[in-house]
C-alpha cells in the first residue's frame, strides 16, 4: 500500500489508505473546536471503517496530542538518526517551516 504523505498537509490530495478521508477529518475534528463537526466525522468514520475504528483513532490522536506537548514543551530536538532518515519527507511536507523545528536546527 502506497501512502501519499502529502495528504497530511494538503486536503486536495488522496492519502491512499482505506477510509483515509474519514480518518483525516476525524483527526482534525477531534482536536478542533467544533463539536458538531466532530459528531459528523465520528458518524462518517464509523460508517466507513466500522465501530472499532473510533476508539482506535481516538487512542492514536490522543497519544500524539500528548507526545506533541511533551516534544514542544520540553524543546527536544529530533534525534540524529531520525533527522537523516526524514530529510525527504520534511522537505516534501514543508515540516522545516514549523516553529518547533528551531529546537533541532539550533544545534546544527
Amino acid at each position: 500500500m502506497e501512502v501519499n504523505l502529502k495528504g497530511l498537509v494538503d486536503s486536495s490530495q488522496d492519502i491512499g489508505v482505506p477510509g483515509g478521508d474519514e480518518l483525516l477529518e476525524f483527526s482534525e475534528a477531534l482536536i478542533g473546536n467544533d463539536s458538531k463537526r466532530l459528531n459528523n466525522a465520528r458518524f462518517d468514520l464509523e460508517k466507513q471503517l466500522g465501530p472499532d475504528a473510533i476508539p482506535a483513532a481516538s487512542a492514536i490522536a490522543a497519544n500524539f496530542s500528548k507526545n506533541d506537548r511533551i516534544a514542544n514543551g520540553c524543546g527536544i530536538p529530533v534525534d540524529d538518526i531520525m533527522l537523516k532518515a526524514t530529510k525527504d519527507i520534511r522537505e516534501e511536507l514543508n515540516l522545516d517551516s514549523f516553529r518547533s523545528a528551531a529546537n533541532t536546527f539550533r544545534h546544527l
Binding site: 501512502v3 504523505l5 495528504g7 497530511l8 498537509v9 492519502i15 489508505v17 482505506p18 477510509g19 483515509g20 480518518l23 483525516l24 476525524f26 483527526s27 482534525e28 482536536i31 471503517l49 475504528a53 482506535a56 483513532a57 492514536i60 490522536a61 497519544n63 500524539f64 496530542s65 507526545n67 506533541d68 506537548r69 516534544a71 514542544n72 527536544i76 530536538p77 529530533v78 511536507l93 515540516l95 522545516d96 514549523f98 516553529r99 518547533s100 523545528a101 529546537n103 533541532t104
Partner: peptide, 17 residues
Amino acid sequence: QVEVVAGKVSALNECFY
C-alpha cells in the same frame, strides 16, 4: 491508518519532532 492519524495530529500541532 494509524500513522495517518498520528501524522495528521502532529502536523496540526506543528510538532517538528
